[in-house]
Amino acid sequence: MDDLTGFQRDLLYVIAGADQPSGQDVKDEVETYYNSEINHGRLYPNLDTLVNKDLVEKGQLDRRTNYYEISDSGQQAIERRREWEQQYISD
């Protein structure tokens, strides 16, 4: 996960916390967090990067809509990241 941008990590976390969200669902959630509009030219290439790195799996809901799902390696990457963060954050 050390080779991901902050935006890509945020996308990964959103996907991990949802049940097979569509790209639009991911976009809506990230826009809420960033409090700004995310254009498709930024969103979909970054989602594709997560798929290409085997952190996320992509499926098809219908001819126009894809869904995204955290992969086992994506879940493991999040767990390793959280363990790393924990050493710097006190509860």
Results as ranks from 00 to 15, higher is better:
Asn52Thr: 07
Leu61Glu: 05
Trp84Pro: 13
Gly6Asn: 12
Asp62Ala: 03
Asn39Met: 10
Arg9Ser: 07
Arg63Glu: 09
Tyr67Val: 04
Ile78Cys: 09
Gln8Asp: 01
Val56Tyr: 00
Ile89Gln: 13
Leu11Phe: 05
Asp91Ser: 12
Arg9Ala: 06
Glu29Ala: 11
Ser36Asn: 13
Asp28Glu: 06
Leu43Pro: 04
Val56Ile: 03
Asp3Pro: 07
Arg42Leu: 14
Ser22Trp: 00
Gly23Leu: 01
Thr65His: 06
Thr32Ile: 12
Arg80His: 10
Trp84Ile: 14
Ile70Pro: 03
Glu57Ser: 07
Leu55Pro: 02
Asp25Pro: 02
Gly74His: 08
Leu43Asn: 03
Thr49Trp: 05
Glu31Phe: 08
Val30Arg: 10
Ile15Ser: 01
Asp72Arg: 12
Glu31Ser: 08
Asp3Gln: 11
Gln8Ser: 00
Ala77Lys: 10
Glu69Val: 08
Val14Gly: 02
Arg42Cys: 13
Arg42Ala: 13
Gln87Ile: 15
Ser90Tyr: 15
Ile89Arg: 14
Tyr88Ser: 14
Arg64Asp: 06
Asp28Phe: 04
Gln87Glu: 15
Gly41Arg: 10
Tyr88Phe: 15
Gln75Leu: 11
Glu31Gln: 10
Gln75Gly: 12
Arg42Pro: 12
Ile70Cys: 05
Ser71Leu: 05
Gly23Asp: 01
Glu37Pro: 14
Val30Ile: 12
Asn66Ser: 07
Pro21Glu: 04
Glu85Arg: 14
Asp2Leu: 15
Ile38Thr: 12
Lys58Arg: 06
Ile78Thr: 09
Leu4Lys: 02
Asn52Lys: 08
Val26Pro: 00
Gly41Thr: 09
Leu43Gln: 04
Phe7Ser: 02
Ser22Tyr: 01
Glu85Trp: 14
Asp54Leu: 07
Ile38Gln: 12
Thr49Glu: 08
Leu12Val: 00
Ile15Thr: 02
Leu12Trp: 00
Thr32Val: 11
Gly23Val: 01
Gln8Pro: 01
Ser90Asp: 15
His40Ile: 14
Leu50Tyr: 04
Leu43Gly: 02
Asp48Lys: 06
Asp25Asn: 03
Asp3Val: 09
Leu47Asp: 03
Ile89Pro: 13
Arg64Gly: 06
Leu11Ala: 04
Ser22Thr: 02
Lys58Ser: 03
Asp48Glu: 07
Arg80Gln: 10
Asp10Phe: 10
